[in-house]
Design a protein around this nucleic acid. Structure first.
Lengths: 182, 182
DNA sequence: TTATTCATGTAATGGGTTACATGATTAG
DNA sequence: CTAATCATGTAACCCATTACATGAATAA
């Protein structure tokens, strides 16, 4: 499991509180890694007990800001460079895309694909706009841009697939219509 | 959770035993949905008790071949067309890609990116070869091709990102080298 | 007849989600 | 002073993984 390394990684990018991490997972990483409050707070305490992170500031409302320690940074580096990634995935989006053309009739499939294409087109557009804006503000080599770029490429892949699937199903349908008419 | 619908969907494509489903998840769907034996057999029994699937054949070695019932097909259609998808993801691959440029030094990052690009290039190549072969065997409208096409597009997106990230990190590095030299 | 593959499962453990609880601070 | 937001957490439940168990059929 990699929640441990997800948290460690985010804190290596910038110190944060549990509350901020939760927002981060919800708004900036929803297509990458997902985690909520009841996982985060116990995990932060565990990482702190093991010496990978530490509280660097106590704010109002019991706010604890955590940062990675040297040991944490070393562990993160070890994980990224030496541990063979688990490349299996479990994505409802991909599962639906897989099943849709295989199990739905053409009308249902085309309807769902039209809606899905819309979602990914919007996501791709807003990521592209964000990247355009950012490239004027920060240095072109800024590593944050690469994170957006990954999301953009995945959204574009989904959009491209939706459009391809739509066309193929439509022409398959057209072909059978044509056959029916002869 | 969608294990229920993953199983229902696979059985809607073609009847199968639990053993065959496990192989399917392992070899044809590893980048889509992941499930193993100890989940599958209880889930199959539950789906059968609820009337969504049924045993259509008992083979040697206690082999049970399951197929979806009309109720199962209706439930699958309902899920695909009416239930709003959960578009959050939890992918170790994406998480690593996100963290890599933000937390590793250039040398480490370039090394890992080179290895990763290799993996996705191979996956894309073999999927492309499989698609080329298939298109000569089956009708172009065959829905199975779309499943391969999705995997291909995602692999190409990962490969494209790896190459882009490699170049940006290299040129960022080159830039700082150039500055050092002056 | 020995090893391999097919085939189905259970038990123990660990990870993740939903629902709930509590209280401090800030904005209107 | 009221509502919204910030902030941390626990309890109960469900889902997923690892390790183990069992035995039938097939290939060498």
């Amino acid at each position: 499991m990699s929640l441990r390394h997800a948290v460690l990684g985010l804190l290596a990018v910038a110190p944060a509180s549990g509350y901020e991490l939760a927002k981060h997972f919800e708004y900036t990483l929803p297509r990458v890694w997902h985690a909520q409050n009841p996982q985060l707070y116990p995990e932060l305490n565990k990482l702190a007990r093991n010496g990978y992170i530490e509280v660097i500031e106590r704010g109002p409302r019991n706010r604890n800001t955590y940062a990675v320690t040297d040991a944490g940074r070393a562990e993160l580096r070890r994980w990224l460079t030496e541990v063979e990634p688990d490349r299996t995935m479990r994505s409802e989006v991909y599962l639906r895309a897989f099943l849709l053309p295989l199990t739905l009739n053409s009308d249902d499939a085309l309807g769902v694909l039209r809606r899905e294409a819309q979602v990914w087109r919007q996501e791709a557009d807003s990521l592209r706009a964000m990247l355009d804006r950012s490239e004027q503000l920060v240095a072109r080599g800024d590593a944050h841009l690469l994170a957006y770029d990954l999301n953009l490429r995945l959204a574009e892949a989904m959009l491209g697939w939706c459009e391809e699937a739509f066309q193929r199903i439509q022409s398959r349908d057209g072909a059978s219509d044509a056959l029916d008419r002869t």
